[in-house]
Amino acid sequence: MSQQDQQPAAQARELVDWEDAAQIAGRLASPGPVASRDELEALVASLRGAAARAVDPVLEITRMTAADGRDLSATGLSGVLVLDRPGWARASARSMQSMTAGALRLPTRTVPLAAELVASAEVGATLALLSTKILGQFDPFGPADGNLLLVAPNVLQTERDLRVRPEDFRLWVCLHEQTHALQTAAAPWIADHLRAKTQTLLADLSTSTSDLRQAPARLFGAARAVVSAVRGTTGPDGQTLSLVDGVLTPTQRQALDEVGAVMALLEGHADVAMDAVGSSVVPTVRSIRRKFSARRSAGGTSTPDRVLRRLLGMDAKMAQYRDGAAFVRGVTRVVGTDGVNAVWSGPDALPSPREIADPVAWVRRVHG
């Protein structure tokens, strides 16, 4: 047995070195649109202000409260970080490290250094590409109550492309992300639930790579599955990214679908909230939604852009928004907003992949 194979488990090399992935992501992330220093400073201040203004409308629309009883109007929902693309990529790598800690080791052997280097580079490159697509993200694994991450260059680029009113669009984006922050405040168990589900899935993937003759395909597939699971790029209908096809067993695919169902709920619920504010809060909300939905549906028209969207799982992500929003609206029609909020009572109340597509089945199970 080699000295490397005798390495203590506590020091065992994992499939992904997240520090390396973060550095690679930060170096590869493109800077984004050009703007003057004054424009950028105004953008940062505007996004911070929008994040603060979004709290009260979200509380009013969802009728949700913090599990610990604190007054969220007074304390706020979370920290707010306005980032550039490299900053988001590095922050996302750190979040994924927290979510997958210890789950990417081989059970009987040390991960080969070459495999770790390649997998880390793949994840870093993927995060760099994703950094050009993300407007905002709530990170429940940040300090204290989590952090709301707003990617300033992407917000700027999108509002320019859509020709929408900047102040309205920035508030609209923050309404979505602050809804995610409220979900975590109302159901503080949900972050650990997702972490446990993801770690179990990835540990199982790591176990299946114990035969090092299969290491290249299996390890690299697992690295891609990390991004899929954590970013929620698997639809609740069982559709998985082509990049992990042939890697996941039926049991693993079911586990990934369960993660996808939770992500569909979270994203769909936030989408419903951001549109429900009405013109008194966001005067051009209907115009923004119409233009934004058309942009989502169209995607890229060129073949390279369509391929990129598929590789990053953006098409499946769009299905999550659509299916999750349909679930929330379907439940609301039957039992109202307070009935929807029963979903935050505990893990047993979360919808299954089948129930995401059949909200009445969820109502029957949870409400009787």
Rank of each mutant, 00 (worst) to 15 (best):
F220M: 11
V331P: 00
A119V: 03
D338V: 02
T303C: 00
G32W: 14
A273W: 01
D139M: 05
Q11D: 10
S95H: 13
S293I: 09
G235Y: 04
A255V: 00
S210A: 15
G124L: 02
D271N: 13
G69H: 03
R27C: 02
L113W: 05
L83C: 03
G235T: 07
A144Y: 10
P359N: 07
A319M: 05
D38I: 05
P143C: 11
M263Y: 10
R37M: 03
Q7T: 15
A119H: 01
R63F: 00
L47M: 15
P347S: 08
T233E: 06
Q23K: 07
R354K: 10
R354G: 04
A187Y: 05
I61N: 00
R165S: 13
L212K: 13
T75Y: 12
L265S: 02
Q157Y: 14
Q320P: 03
R195S: 12
A361S: 14
V282Q: 02
D17E: 11
S78V: 05
E116I: 01
D305P: 02
R37F: 04
V80M: 09
D315T: 13
L265N: 01
I190W: 14
R286N: 14
M314S: 09
V151F: 05
A203F: 05
L311S: 07
G336H: 04
A22H: 06
H180G: 09
D56M: 08
G232N: 11
Q6W: 07
W18A: 01
C174A: 15
A45P: 04
M314I: 10
I24Q: 09
P351C: 06
V343S: 03
R170P: 01
A35R: 10
E60I: 12
E355L: 01
E60A: 15
V328L: 05
L72D: 02
G268P: 00
P216N: 15
S46K: 10
D71P: 06
A10V: 12
H180N: 06
Q157I: 04
A342L: 11
T108V: 06
Y321H: 15
V328E: 00
P153C: 08
G32D: 05
G299C: 12
S92K: 15
S206M: 10
R354T: 08
Q254D: 12
